[in-house]
Amino acid sequence: MQPFAYHKVRDAETAIAHGARDPQTIFLAGGTDLVQLLEDGISRPQGVVDISALPFDAIATTIDGLRIGALAKLADVADHAEIRARYPAIAAALGETASPMVRNMATMGGNLLQRTRCLYFRDGVSPCNKRAPGSGCSARLGHDAQAALFGASEACVATHPSDLAVALLALDAEVLVVGPSGERSIPLDRLHRLPGETPWIESDLEPGEVITAIFVPREAAGRAQAYAKLRHRASFEWPLVSAAVSLALVEGTIEDARIALGAVAHKPWRAETAERLLIGRRIDDALAREAGEAATDGARPIAENAAKIPLMARIVTRALQDCARQQAGDPS
């Protein structure tokens, strides 16, 4: 860990000013990913700006939906009665995130901006275009089941490991930010970028921009929704694959569907073919399987990640089956 200047800020303006002055500035919130990156010398900022005291941790229901402060802790969001009752996909995704200690520390905004678990990025040594631009991608031909199935480039096959982001994408959430040019909102689908030729640029955020909140539209609360995650250990592991689904149902018929896949791309990934297939139909076991298969449309296996394709289909099926059970009034 190289020396850096530590700045604790009490207001957003100061944080933004730091970030605008030095684009390499890192914002520290919960620290659960950042401290690992510092510890391993992967992140070597001159300045670390501690934004944890900014007043962005409230969880509030508004007339339009739900506003979750970016600095709210994962554990508090997962425990929130309104979220458990009306946005259960979020609570489920958070409940399966990391460990209880990490959930007490990590923030919503930080979770969305956590960096890939790609083994070749994290080891601090291997060629990696994301960590050391121009050095090459070791993961493309490596044996790492994490590698992306969608949207990868020659330069990078890393995946985004967040559980939360997958649930939020399925609920059509937006990220609210404030920065040098004022406030704006970013649809979750556009927060993260595909790697392209510049895999080190991971989000749509400009230097100095700070996430203030996550907004989930009220419409999401009325949807059948589920999050399903597959991992090797029964707990405390990033997903091998995961899926979040939300279905707008009218008298049992699917009017709209959103399916998001986790750990298969550089960003949470929409399974649009599968979504289209669901529209106008009634959810049942056969349809859940059909849509699961459709969710693999366009998946391009590389190296040792081919097994993730059938697993992805089946995890989508599980999430849809969960929705079907909710629809049938079976809470199990």
């Binding site: 678990r117 070749y120 080891d123 291997s126 490596g142 029964a234 707990s235 405390f236 592991e237």
Partner: peptide
């Protein structure tokens, strides 16, 4: 290719946890 152990940490070298 690299002659390297890639998961040399406790997050990805998976010792069983209580839930296992």
């Amino acid at each position: 290719r690299l002659g390297r152990v890639m998961n040399a940490n406790l997050a990805e070298y998976l010792a069983p946890v209580c839930a296992d």
